[in-house]
Design a protein around this nucleic acid. Structure first.
Length: 421
RNA sequence: GUGGGCGUAGCUCAGCGGUAGAGCUCUGGACUGUGGCUCCAGCUGUCGCGGGUUCAACUCCCGUCGUCCACCCCA
């Protein structure tokens, strides 16, 4: 075989696409019940948009972007996430409403030049939500509700929600300094990556998964203890509301998300069945981003979730929905006379039913086998005898019973018998 | 990006210096107008790709690509 799908990309084959349609349908359904409207934006944007929007020192921008030059020499990048593009579109088309929030959802492929592994692809698919324009903690909670509602709607059970607060420009600098001070004392016992992080972005040290680093974290100051009055109040209200809607969660002071633009509330939802790639989705508040991207100061909150991992988790739990797409009827000619009637009858029945047939003029036995493989509910047998008396024989593949039905009444017969399921 | 495992039929895999195999699937038949069970017969391969060692390589060596696992990071 000469051609193969590129590393980190894959085909979603017909046997799988129904699951994807199901997942996207569940997401769109939940999002719409929360008043979100769909937005679709380009697959590629100016490289600069992502560099500014995501953050120069994030891993995504530093080493994971699919960047290329077009014929005019412009630097373009395949979108590695959705938020930057949504904000760009929001500003470009002045979507802001005088009062209230703009609530958007999106779904589609994203691209990151990562090393592929289970649940991680270079072209992967995300669904996401952005609430733009509200500083209210209720917005934070509603987005999290959508995320959890989506995953539960898929049928997932072993979910764990973690939340944290990253503070704001008022309280974070002070905390970062005290964190840096505390880290200075233990630098020698940290991993190489963390030593570098101490200077650049001390918060990210907390995100380290190395055992030797994690052991030290108990003694470090946490953001939650250094929140300013407003941030502290914000966090408390988020927790109150989560309690009010009985959404179980765990406060994780070490939860620091990878993107630079987050402020205050941050959250992730994990699945117990997945190994190292257990994060199904995550998000949080990004009150500074829109201003940073050239817009007016505008609070916002949102999340994104990975479809590959959600579907992987479903398989893990054995909870994948039954999404068979079986034909209602299989039409089998018994002889040459029947063969001649096939095009007309299938065309007629296909105006109302899913009809399958064989294209190889095989014997009846083989056609029945084929009908069973397709999972057809009924088989219509048509031969010289039936044509002569203007009827067809219809066999119910489940009960094995067979009936003779007038050709003129076949639609009504099928309608009645399919409905009786 | 780092370390390790694995690439043999459509699928799951065995083989291991000397003529490429099994099960499932598929096709046909037993059952000449009726599926699922059973039995019989048959089809299918550049042994991932490229070099090297050898009289001889699916087998050993090197490289490469792909894939999986762990780490990094994330979705």
């Amino acid at each position: 075989m000469k051609y193969r799908a590129m590393r980190g990309t894959r085909d979603i084959l017909p046997g799988e696409t129904r699951k994807w349609q199901f997942a996207e349908g569940v997401f769109a359904g939940v999002a719409k019940r929360y008043g979100c409207r769909e937005i679709r934006f380009p697959i590629f944007e100016a490289t600069d948009l992502f560099e500014r929007g995501i953050g120069e020192m994030t891993d995504i921008v530093k080493k994971e972007m699919y960047t290329f030059h077009d014929r005019k020499g412009r630097s373009l990048t395949l979108r590695p996430e959705g938020t930057a593009s949504v904000v760009r579109a929001y500003l470009e088309h002045s979507l802001a409403r005088r009062a209230g929030v703009v609530k958007l959802f999106y779904m589609g492929p994203m691209f990151r030049y990562d090393r592929p592994g289970q649940g991680r692809y270079r072209q992967f698919h995300q669904v996401g939500i952005e609430f733009i324009g509200s500083p209210d903690p209720q917005a934070d909670v509603e987005t999290l509700e959508i995320l959890v509602g989506f995953l539960k709607g898929l049928g997932l059970r072993n979910l764990e929600t973690r939340i944290n607060s990253l503070g704001c420009p008022v309280c974070r600098p002070g905390y970062q300094q005290s964190l840096r001070d505390a880290l200075a004392g233990i630098t020698s016992s940290l991993c190489e990556d963390c030593i570098e992080r101490v200077e650049r972005n001390p918060l990210r040290v907390l995100d380290c998964k190395q055992e030797k680093c994690r052991l030290q974290f108990g003694k470090l100051p946490v953001m939650l203890d250094h929140l300013c009055g407003e941030c502290d109040d914000h966090m408390k209200r988020v927790e109150e509301m989560l309690g009010g809607i009985r959404l179980p969660y765990r406060v994780d002071p070490l939860l620091v998300r990878g993107l630079d633009y987050y402020t205050r509330t941050t959250y992730e939802v994990h699945h117990a069945g997945l190994g190292s790639q257990s994060a199904l989705g995550g998000g949080g508040r990004y009150d500074g981003l829109i201003e940073q991207m050239g817009g007016p100061p505008t609070p916002a909150v949102g999340f994104s979730a990975g479809l590959e991992r959600a579907l992987l988790s479903l398989d893990e739990e054995g909870a994948s929905p039954d999404v068979a797409e079986n034909p209602d009827v299989f039409i089998a000619p018994a002889d040459e006379t029947g063969e001649r009637e096939i095009p007309g009858l299938t065309h007629r029945l296909r105006q109302r039913f899913a009809v399958e047939r064989d294209y190889r003029r095989r014997n009846l036995k083989s056609q029945f086998k084929s009908a069973a493989d397709h999972g057809a509910r009924f088989v219509i047998i048509l031969g010289e005898q039936e044509v002569a008396e203007g009827s067809v024989a219809v066999k119910d593949m489940e009960s094995g019973e067979q009936a003779k039905v007038p050709l003129s009444a076949i639609e009504e017969w099928l309608e009645a018998n399919l409905a009786s399921l």
